[in-house]
Design a protein around this nucleic acid. Structure first.
Ligand SMILES: [Mn+2]
Ligand SMILES: [Mn+2]
Ligand SMILES: [Mn+2]
Ligand SMILES: [Mn+2]
Lengths: 151, 151
DNA sequence: ACGGAAATGTAGCCCGTGCTATATTTCCAA
DNA sequence: TTGGAAATATAGCACGGGCTACATTTCCGT
């Protein structure tokens, strides 16, 4: 039952295959940023709609309590993604706005692709909320190419 | 700046749209089961390869330390997904095996679809590790239909 | 102008998911 | 057979991300 011989890399000179651990490690790394992505995207939406993003509105749209949203905003602030003053609205920094733009683009593209392969729009919108965070640049490019190529 | 008038449901008799909060709540729920899904799938793989799933092998394949894997196995045990005796291997219960089968099928289907729309296999495999957990039954069905329909 | 309602902030709890350090057990080779 | 290496278990720390309860501040209608 020896399994010490699982190839950590190929014996020859070739690049090692992306190992299982790489995949899982990648997924864990993404998981830790997914929440920030959802927050920045949402704050961008609210700011566009109302001129500011209030804690209460953020919390309601996310389906969490406001203390939860408040804590998350503190983390966002710590990471330099938003600015805010006590008892006032939350606003994206340039870094936050950049993240929001990128995430929103990914979100839309994922929804479009899902619909293009036959997923009902409702389900596409629902599933995309999770999927969007795990779609790499490479895959995004492929989605674009696919969508362009079909008319 | 009044936003108390955001429609919680449509004024008429129609079903309320899946609201933003629903989407995020759904994604949060899935996030909390994704780890179990990866573990059961991996334990099934190791069991098939070696006749048992050892903590060390689980940890190495996931790219975490063995105390982390050990703790996770305790949670899996608590949820009735695995059985194990101290200092021995880990084995799936019927429920765990069922989860593993379902997750593996989803994993493969997601990879196949990504490749079918032009994603390079390497990237497909990488991204699928995260995406797989967020694909609903409805979307899975659509993937199957799409893949069948293209020859 | 002010009093109550709404919004925001904070404290403190729970549990998950990672880690390091250390103890214990099992296994294998000499 | 036994001693050391490998595997496993456990303790304890950190932090994320959820909650409730309560304090504070802001806002608005009378
Ligand atoms: Mn999302
Ligand atoms: Mn999104
Ligand atoms: Mn996975
Ligand atoms: Mn998988």
């Amino acid at each position: 039952m020896s399994r010490d011989d699982l190839p950590p890399e190929a014996g020859d000179g070739t690049l090692p295959e992306a190992t299982d651990a790489d995949r899982f490690t990648n997924a864990r790394a993404i998981r830790s940023t997914a929440l920030f992505e959802d927050y920045t995207e949402l704050i961008a939406d609210l700011t566009e709609e109302f001129g500011e993003a209030r804690i209460t509105d953020i919390a309601r749209r996310l389906g969490v309590t406001h203390p939860t949203a408040n804590k998350a905003v503190l983390r966002l602030k710590r990471e330099g993604l938003v600015i805010s003053r006590p008892y006032r609205g939350v606003f994206l920094t340039e870094a936050g706005a950049a993240m929001a733009r990128q995430v929103k683009a990914r979100h839309r593209l994922v929804v479009r692709l899902l619909i293009a392969v036959g997923v009902p729009p409702e389900a596409a919108e629902m599933d995309a909320e999770g999927i969007e965070h795990y779609v790499s640049e490479t895959t995004l490019k492929a989605f674009e190419t696919y969508l362009d190529g079909r008319q």
